[in-house]
Structures are given as structure tokens and as C-alpha cells.
Nucleic acid binder design. Structure first.
Length: 141
DNA sequence: TAGGCCATCTGGTCCT
DNA sequence: AGGACCAGATGGCCTA
């Protein structure tokens, strides 16, 4: 994530005013607003942490730059649909194949599911199952 | 320079 | 009453 400096409208961010005034000298309304701003900032940071976690498990084929939040959500949706499709296809196969698949899924740590796409063949198959297009921002489930 | 993306502030609403 | 959540507004940064 790019590091961004606070915007100039960052009035509640304990900066210039906080230097000249201790918090207890704030007007109650100002103090409450400032606290609410801090909570909102923390909440959004939590949300961004969640987005970062999601980016780590979502494929980023051909994308050298970080997915935007919108793209991350769209990709996650498409990824889930693709994996679901693969599982559905796998269930149609014979027992030995199903056992193999079950074994693979059991052995996979959750974090590895998104970053290790297996052999090039597996990767191609998974990618071909994807419907999310970066340019068009479209998802066809 | 325009457009995309983002962080932050803010006021409103809902919930505990 | 206070906190969580949300959406709109605003302004900064980056890239084509």
C-alpha cells in the first residue's frame, strides 16, 4: 500500500491544534468529534488490513501493480466462482481422481490456496475458468 | 492536465 | 449517550 500523508483537511488528527491545546481543554463537541475521527480512521485501517489479506490470497495474473479495492473484490468473487466450478468438475471424475483431489485439498494450508497455483497446467486451467476482466470490470458468474 | 484511487473528515442513522 | 457503520465531500498523489 502506498503511504499517503494526511490530507490538509485533517483537522481532527491531533496535529497543530493538539500541540497548542491539551485534549481536556477542547470543547466537548470538538473532543467528541476528534475521538470519532480517530475511531473512523482505525476502522478504515482495519478494513484496509482486511483488503491486504484478501489481496494475498487472490490471484493477480499479469498485474504488476496492486489491485484496487474494487478490483480485489471483483477478483475475489470471480476466484470463488472459478474454484467452485473446478470442484464441481472434479466431482464428476472417477473415484481415484476425487481421492487425489480430496487429498490435495486436505493437505493445503488455507493461505497457500491463493498463492500457489500448482503446475502450469493447473494454473492455465484455473485462469481459463476465470471470468473477471481487469479492463472491463465485469464479472460473469 | 484529467482521471483514478485513496485517506480523512463529517454528519446521519442504527444499535447497545 | 456513545460507538459502529455508512455515504458524501474534499483534497492529495500518481499515471497516462
Amino acid at each position: 500500500m502506498k503511504s499517503r500523508r494526511p490530507s490538509c483537511t485533517d483537522s481532527g488528527s491531533e496535529s497543530s491544534e493538539a500541540d497548542s491545546k491539551s485534549p481536556e481543554k477542547y470543547e466537548p463537541v470538538t473532543r467528541r468529534r476528534s475521538a470519532a475521527n480517530a475511531r473512523e480512521r482505525k476502522r478504515m485501517q482495519g478494513l484496509n488490513t482486511a483488503f491486504d489479506s484478501l489481496r494475498k490470497v487472490v490471484p493477480q495474473w499479469g498485474q504488476d501493480k496492486q489491485l484496487s479495492k474494487y478490483e480485489t473484490l471483483q477478483m475475489a468473487l470471480s476466484y470463488i466462482v472459478a474454484l467452485n466450478r473446478i470442484l464441481t468438475e472434479a466431482r464428476r471424475h472417477s473415484a481415484p481422481h476425487r481421492q487425489w483431489l480430496d487429498l490435495q485439498l486436505d493437505c493445503l494450508p488455507p493461505e497457500a490456496c491463493g498463492t500457489d497455483y500448482g503446475s502450469p497446467t493447473d494454473q492455465d486451467y484455473l485462469q481459463s475458468s476465470f471470468s473477471y476482466q481487469f479492463d472491463g470490470h465485469q464479472v460473469h458468474a
